[in-house]
Design a protein around this nucleic acid. Structure first.
Lengths: 199, 199, 199, 199
DNA sequence: CCATAAACGAGACGGTACGTCATGTCTTCAA
DNA sequence: TTGAAGACATGACGTACCGTCTCGTTTATGG
């Protein structure tokens, strides 16, 4: 799910990127994110913990925030298949986030990645690109189908739906710092269908 | 709407807190928040811009984040009277946030205050206290009344309602960095009523 | 003999320079000079050894080299009174350098200070200013007097005399890294008188 | 006049040392020496400027300082024949240094090479070996002959003569950073004869 | 009406981190 | 095996901030 290596150059003279170093850096980043938050996050500490050089970090990531988002994205699993039920199919799109937040230090990692995305341009671009690819795009297809079947209204705004679907999760993670109970995403999907239902 | 001066000491020898200095610091804080974000925010810069001493800042605020939240809260206007319509009454509770985000650098200030609240314990406490006092408490009264009149279901969870009401705003402000259109809060209030409607 | 504090400002608001910190930094500088030479010299090490912050070093010295020269100059004792004999009077001017080179780690400190002066503009200025004040100026007076008494020729070039007087010391210290035997400066003074003697 | 290639290996498999690369590196070294001094000197910059790999540099020179001295020595011309006059014969030994210092960036290159020699063991050994071979050894023969002819005293110390002869040049080059006028070395030779004259 | 104590500006200080640059080693590819 | 290209761990560079700590000055009581 990591994004920075995609689009590898064909072949060059000289050494290639060390995958061991990359993995160590991302893992160290996650640990530091959970321990120190966003403002207290330090590249020096990550480098020391990963036995990596700062240069290596700055060589491969455009900013600290982008590295944090990258480290968080690498934690998010793939979406399960959704089945046939509309609510289940919507839930399937966002449940990987819930799963991440409910596993290990995922809650804190996700929170800090969101902070990074909101505070740093490169990180924000990375995060929005992920949302676009993994949530917005499939959701568009799904909602178009449901609207065609008259399950939901046709005059919805895709971005408003996303706000409604994801907003509550951000409130939990960032404002309340509260744990995310199982089924949280399913509830949000249900709320969405209720709001946009045709009746 | 500022919170740190409340609870004035009885009487002491010597000069009292300089309101001019306080105002200059809060205003400088807002400017810096909008310019540098949260991770780049610096007390030194605020002190220099406000022609204040760092000691003065550290004397009156428990943490940098608390100062940022304080500076943002001072920007939020009071709620208007809500009228009789349920949707209008809910809207009235959250519309001050929308108004702040739509005025001057309020969008950025609010965003950084949220970052501070999510990243710093003192700031988070301050922000959650404000939500509790200015949103949660009046909303509880209002929803109880509406439930009594069978306008909404009785088995709602107050905090879920708040998530549904505020979450979309956080998504706009922090994730998308998109401007908040007029009427945004009214739409959220409508969505809430639709989700919790009895029918 | 240190030069950077001379010309103290009359009085200012706020704290003043910490003399304890200054002394610790200069002493640490001398130790590091002797241990690591000039190219290997590190401000970080000095700061750590002196329990000082790098900012404090950069605040008070214009460059690393200037600090090194300053640290060396602080080691050079004052000139003794010269007596009546011409050779003794010349010797007295340069014997403090010999004494420094013959004491403790003075040999290495002096060598590194010379390297700094030759490699760094600020350090060179500082060093040449010291030579001008402590050697060139008194030597000019002395030679003028000796020329008046026909002890030496009148058509000498002051800077050539200085070259003749100090050059051999630099060769010892820098090129050969050889110890400086007692009486070395007296010999150089004798050579000078011989070169410029009237006969 | 370069010293590191002397003693060529008998014969090996694979390509031999590239003289083009060596020349480019030494020339780039000279340019960098003149531009950045000794402490600011960087192998990376030399490699980039010479379009060479760092590995190639580290393969052929024992240390950075040695490379610098090597680059400077390559600039020093051979001694001219000295004629019959004692002063001219001494002058001939040291005039190549003067000539180097008076040509192109030779002044700076020589200065930095001396800094390297004084700061780095390998470089110092290289420099002292050159002095031994090109100055000390021929000077010993010459002085012995002059002493035999009673032109100079017999109780001189060879190394003191060298100090007297070269020291003033170091003072010029390193301490004063002053240009070396034509005839400078001849004057030093004259001074030496005067000091050690029999009369 | 002082005197005393707190508030304030200014800013030095010991630290930690920043983002960049250099060192010396290593790896990959071409010749 | 040489050499260009360059990634890598290490560590220093010079700057910026943090939070604490003097300094002198100003200002409001309380003796």
């Amino acid at each position: 799910m990591s994004t920075t290596t995609e689009g590898t150059k064909p072949s060059r003279k000289g050494p290639t990127r060390s995958e061991a170093s990359k993995a160590a850096i991302l893992e160290a980043t996650r640990v530091e994110m959970a321990e120190t938050g966003w403002r207290g996050f330090s590249v020096d500490s990550v480098a020391k913990r990963a036995s990596a050089s700062k240069q290596t970090i700055y060589r491969w990531w455009p900013s600290i925030g982008a590295m944090c988002v990258d480290a968080a994205l690498a934690l998010i699993p793939d979406s399960p298949d959704g089945g046939r039920d509309p609510q289940e199919r919507i839930t399937a799109l966002i449940v990987p986030l819930e799963a991440t937040a409910r596993t290990g230090n995922g809650h804190a990692v996700l929170r800090v990645a969101l902070l990074a995305a909101a505070d740093d341009k490169d990180a924000g671009d990375l995060w929005r690109a992920w949302i676009g690819r993994d949530i917005r795009q499939p959701l568009r297809m799904l909602l178009a189908e449901l609207a065609g079947k008259r399950v939901i209204r046709r005059d919805f705004d895709l971005d408003e739906v996303i706000e409604l679907l994801l907003g509550p999760l951000w409130h939990r993670l960032m404002i309340m710092r509260a744990p995310v109970r199982e089924g949280f995403c399913a509830e949000q999907a249900g709320n969405c269908l209720r709001v946009y239902a045709t009746f």
